[in-house]
Structure formats: C-alpha cells, structure tokens
Amino acid sequence: MTATVLPIALALFSLSLLLNLYRLLRGPDIVDRILGLDTLNVNAIAVIVLGGIYMDSSLIFEAALLIALMGFVSTVAMTKYLVRGDVIE
C-alpha cells in the first residue's frame, strides 16, 4: 500500500513546491519571499525523506538535515537583517 501512496505523496509535495516557488517569485514584499523560501526548505525536506523511502536507503537524510539547518539559519539571518539592519551585531 505504501508503494502506491508514495508517488501520490511525491506529486502532492511537488505541487506544493510549485506553489511556494510562485510565492517566492511573485511575493509583493520581501517578507513574502522569505516566507516562500522557508516553506520551500521545509517541503524540500519532506521530498528528500520520501525519496529516501522510495530508494529504501537512509543515506540522503544527511542532505535533509543539512537543508533543515541551513534553511533555519538563513531565514533567521534574513529577518534579522530586515529588523536590525545587521546580521551579527
């Protein structure tokens, strides 16, 4: 049953990646673009995890962990730059 659900879940996540990309490209304000990029990161983690199930190997979870880490740090850096005018005070 998982084998049949897996491509459907991948397709749904790809659709949400496209919606996030639309918001990232179009967003009227810079905060919209940051929000779109952050959501893109979160959904990319899920796509990588589903790919790991599909390939039956947990090797690429390192990449997902890296994306989670760098995505959070970059979001915090960009918002901090917007609010404070500097990233590292």
């Binding site: 459907i8 879940a9 991948l10 749904l12 996540f13 659709l15 949400s16 990646l17 919606l19 996030n20 639309y22 918001r23 929000l35 779109g36 959501t39 959904n43 899920a46």
Partner: peptide, 13 residues
C-alpha cells in the same frame, strides 16, 4: 502529511 502540506502551500499562495 502530503495533503496537509499542500493545504499550507495553497494558503501561502
């Protein structure tokens, strides 16, 4: 999970 994440992305768009 995929459906709920898609719902969130539709909300974002």
């Amino acid at each position: 999970g995929a459906l709920v994440a898609l719902l969130g992305s539709i909300g974002l768009a």
